[in-house]
Write a protein that binds this DNA or RNA. Structure first.
Lengths: 219, 219
DNA sequence: GAGTGGTCTAGACCACGTT
DNA sequence: ACGTGGTCTAGACCACTCG
């Protein structure tokens, strides 16, 4: 029913952090354990998590400290994403999208499913996403999710992702959709999404609108 | 002298993985502990690390399995990076690089140190890096490292990084260096490197040569 | 019911930094 | 000498899955 102790300790420590100045020490593992009446390993588990999330940092054999959570220097704003399906079809000859075939571990004439959608913030186009999957590797349930304007983030958290970025001129077919002139440079991302067990799952090609929020790299 | 047990166990398990097919189960935590004569928590620690590194994956209460380490679909090749310093100077008026000032938490007329270098693979230019630091925040030792063709990777591992990517035409001043025509689109990366405690440390602006290896995102 | 991973305990020893 | 984090042990209970 209730969350594990170490999660509760994490929440407690987050609050403690918020009260303290950056770079000030927090209580030692042993103190925390004693204060909260838990074992040292449980306190330690909570601290480890918060370190990897950037709330705290450790320093040798000196102690654990509150990290300075500095703001990013590039502009970020609130975005309310909306997805508009452009089309959803099957491809019997995907030889002109050989990156998709390779990423999905398919042969030239294997059937692919393709979903193309425009992601908007209000009326501002943010990006175009082309999502490919090998029909043979996708369950009906997964297909339903794809069909229902799937949000990719949870899938990425379970599995693993490999991606490469390329600069290029906006493709003619997407220029109007992204409200861009023909000679605008954009970033294209080719992304391979694997399941937790490592089997290929999706190939996603994204074209970003450079006039909106920049492409931000995770920490 | 010798490495911790859990690291030795990690190496042992990596070898075991290599012998097995993807998706085949490995021994349970208890079995490993008994086989190697260690406690279960130590075996567990090793397994956790290997999961987070993508060698193994866990499945509910069923067991732990060998992950399929699939190849990337985009081209990667061996690269031998070489750095050539272009210049190294101080900037007294950095108002035209306001992203650097903001990232380093400095005021308009604070003094910045700038290091510009070209990174090559043999004779192929890979990218241009502009590295900025606030003079006041950088120790002499760090300055020495910067001067000595600093490799940024270890610094990033200690600290935390925030970065944003922008598509743009190659800047005129770098076109010849990167062996590009004037109208080539490139990816620009603006990167904020923080120390482990969160204080800003470096601002790095990179222009990538699109004709070489693509920009690859970490897992 | 047997086995699995997930959590938790109450101890222990070590290397290292500060005082 | 003392306190810190880093490692390690030998147990324990739980919820869950599978045969």
């Amino acid at each position: 029913m209730s969350s594990p102790k170490y999660v509760q300790v994490m929440n407690y420590l987050k609050e403690e952090c918020a009260k303290k100045e950056p770079h000030s020490p927090i209580a030692s593992e042993r103190e925390i354990a004693q204060t909260l009446g838990i074992s040292r390993m449980t306190a330690r588990h909570a601290i480890e998590e918060l370190c990897s999330q950037g709330y705290l940092y450790r320093e040798g054999n000196k102690g654990t400290f509150v990290a300075q959570r500095s703001k990013a220097s590039f502009p970020t704003k609130e975005i309310n994403e909306r997805r508009r399906l452009l089309f959803f079809d099957s491809i019997y000859d995907a030889s002109n999208i050989k990156e998709a075939l390779a990423a999905l571990n398919q042969q030239p004439h294997d059937k692919l499913i393709r979903l193309v959608r425009l992601v908007l913030d209000e009326d501002t186009p943010l990006r175009v996403e082309e999502i490919y999957a090998a029909e043979i590797d996708v369950s009906d349930e997964e297909l339903g999710k794809l069909n229902a304007f799937l949000i990719l983030e949870p899938l990425k958290e379970n599995g693993r992702v490999k991606a490469a970025l390329y600069p290029q001129m906006v493709p003619a077919k997407y220029a109007r959709l992204l409200k861009l002139k023909q000679d605008m440079p954009v970033i294209r991302k080719d992304e391979q999404i694997m399941r937790a067990d490592g089997r290929p799952f999706l190939f996603v090609r994204t074209f970003y609108n450079p006039n909106t929020q920049p492409y931000i790299l995770a920490d």
